[in-house]
């Protein structure tokens, strides 16, 4: 009978160790989770910052490219305007001179 009791006590001691180990493991899981939770917001912020920085760089690059096109087009337009004006400057000068003379039109 004492042999049986002895065996049960040993089993119970072993069972207690198994439970204790599991509780220790559970504590470890809990600590890991708490650490992850603490790191969550900084990690999300860091990830979002990377995404937004990439987005911003993309937007700026696209805008810079479009800006260059707009300015190049404007320079072409300015050159076209200059060319056009050169062809008509004589006529314009005559107009201005005649406009000056018009101030000395016949006295009323």
């Amino acid at each position: 009978m004492s042999e049986v009791l002895n065996g049960v006590q040993k089993a119970e001691a072993e069972a207690a160790k198994i439970i204790e180990k599991a509780q220790s493991k559970a504590e470890e899981i809990k600590r890991d989770a708490e650490r992850k939770i603490r790191e969550t917001e900084p990690n999300v912020r860091s990830q979002l910052t990377e995404e937004i920085t990439a987005l911003q760089q993309g937007i700026e690059k696209k805008a810079q490219t479009q800006a260059k096109t707009i300015l190049a087009k404007a320079d072409n337009e300015a050159a076209a305007i200059e060319e056009q004006a050169k062809k008509h400057i004589k006529k314009t000068v005559d107009f201005i001179v005649s406009a000056i003379y018009s101030f000395g039109g016949a006295a009323k």
């Binding site: 065996g7 049960v8 119970e12 198994i18």
Partner: peptide
């Protein structure tokens, strides 16, 4: 009896984890 005690402890441990 010993096996039952150990098995129950293992089941409890599994559930705790």
């Amino acid at each position: 009896i010993e096996k039952a005690i150990i098995d129950e402890a293992k089941a409890q441990a599994k559930k705790i984890v």
